[in-house]
Amino acid sequence: MIRILSILVGLFFSLALLWSLGKGAASFISEPPAATVEQAFHKPPRELRLASDGLFGTFDKQQLQRGFQVYDEVCKACHSLRLVAFRDLKALGYNDDEVKAIAAKYQVPGVDPNTGEANTRPGRPTDFFPQPFANDIAARAANNNAIPPDLSLMTKARHDGAAYVYSLLTGFQEQPAALLKQFPDARTPAGLHYNPYFANLNLAMAPPLTADGQVTYKDGTRSTVDQMSRDVAAFLVWTAEPKLEKRKQTGWPVLGFLLFATILGNLAYRNIWRDMKH
């Protein structure tokens, strides 16, 4: 009885599925899905190699400092870094006084101790990086109706994040003629900027890094657009995963120990089962 019922239920689901399949196939043949402009022209990120890559990778602190300089001089005008505190910058090799000086350059929200009114005060190492805009509405109003995203986790919040940041920063270009030929309606709207590494190809952010030497690196590295993009990508890998080095450094002894313990365990297992055929 239960088997007859089960066969009926099985047939029910199978028929419903085949019905869906048939209708889907029919519409697929009658109206094949048109290629979209994103499918045709979106590019995967360009390859970016960083010191922090790989199983043994560690941060290149000089590069992180350069990347921070790019953030500090360029990105911070629009993008927050709200999950990072100034004190965290010590990990980039700055000492206490340098961190204090960096923090003090930023104005963070405060309260006037006498009147209680909101004001700003210079940052302290314990403060987090301040938001450039008072709220989302202000951010939209100032940025062509797009909110500049927070950058703290950017390299973990995109596939292949560091390469994505690097590609996006170096990827601004004229819309290809072939694109307009194939998709005449896909002309980049006024105020947006074509970038094949951005998911929908048109991005509100104007190219932020436009000229070599836009940032004068303290360590004397030549600041080409490519170099600055790499550096800021490296910096954002650190902001997204500050424990990356500690994670890998912990991982190796753990794996080494587990390997050792597993081998010992296997030997003990062989010992115990030695006279027991199985």
């Binding site: 313990a261 010992l264 365990g265 003990a268 030695r274």
Partner: peptide, 16 residues
């Protein structure tokens, strides 16, 4: 020798 391996294995597990 066999006891030693068994004890070492249990020991390693305890250390872990």
């Amino acid at each position: 020798r066999r006891d030693f391996i068994n004890i070492a294995a249990v020991g390693a597990a305890s250390v872990g």
